[in-house]
Amino acid sequence: MNTRIIFTIIVISLGSIAAILPKTKTSSTQLTADELLMEMKLQTYVVSTDELADLLISNDPAIMLIDVRDSVAYQQYHLPGAINIPLKDLLHPDWIPYVDQISKKNIFYSNGTTLSNEAWIVTKQLGFRNNYVLGGGLNEWFSSIISPERPASTDPNEIWALYETRKAASMYFSGSKPAAREDNSTILPPIPRKKKTRVQGGCS
């Protein structure tokens, strides 16, 4: 058998395999279902209400709170310094510089965690980084920070210490101070992430 016939047989077989391969989309940024489940299980993207209270009190300039509820709910109440990007507008070109950037830690929140988790999954699959979700949402924020439940007198000291901190935070947020971060204009514009682009090639 000459080389041509051997070669033809090999490539036609490989070509037939290529033709019947199921269509897959391999992307360096998109997670597989398993990877996504694993991330969700590990909860690495969740910021607890206590952590958030800490960050807000210390006036950390590197966080950006993003309210993903609709604008009516946002106007009624929102966390100090939060900007409003309703979930349906998340990928609007005007907002992309906010959700796809590398300089800040974005924290999505909604009343519970349904909307904010959706926002996180969408941005994660697009390869955007630095996006987090407020654990428990505004509901948890109210029950744990704004009006913390008084522990039983038999509870251990740590619980009491936590309660004291929360109580102080509550005073901070419900007092006359929360206007501190209200002015959005002072927030530095985010630095855009380097985009995933095709490499230059060929002879150009």
């Binding site: 490539v11 490989l14 070509g15 290529a18 391969l21 897959t24 391999t26 992307s27 360096s28 995933k196 682009t197 095709r198 490499v199 230059q200 090639g201 060929g202």
Partner: peptide, 24 residues
């Protein structure tokens, strides 16, 4: 043909992201 089949199989095995590879 070799390059073409190679890219298709590498992509199938998740070893190359064809969104980044240069296309004329």
């Amino acid at each position: 043909i070799t390059g073409m089949l190679g890219l298709i199989f590498l992509n199938f095995m998740g070893l190359i992201d064809l969104d980044i590879v240069y296309i004329n």
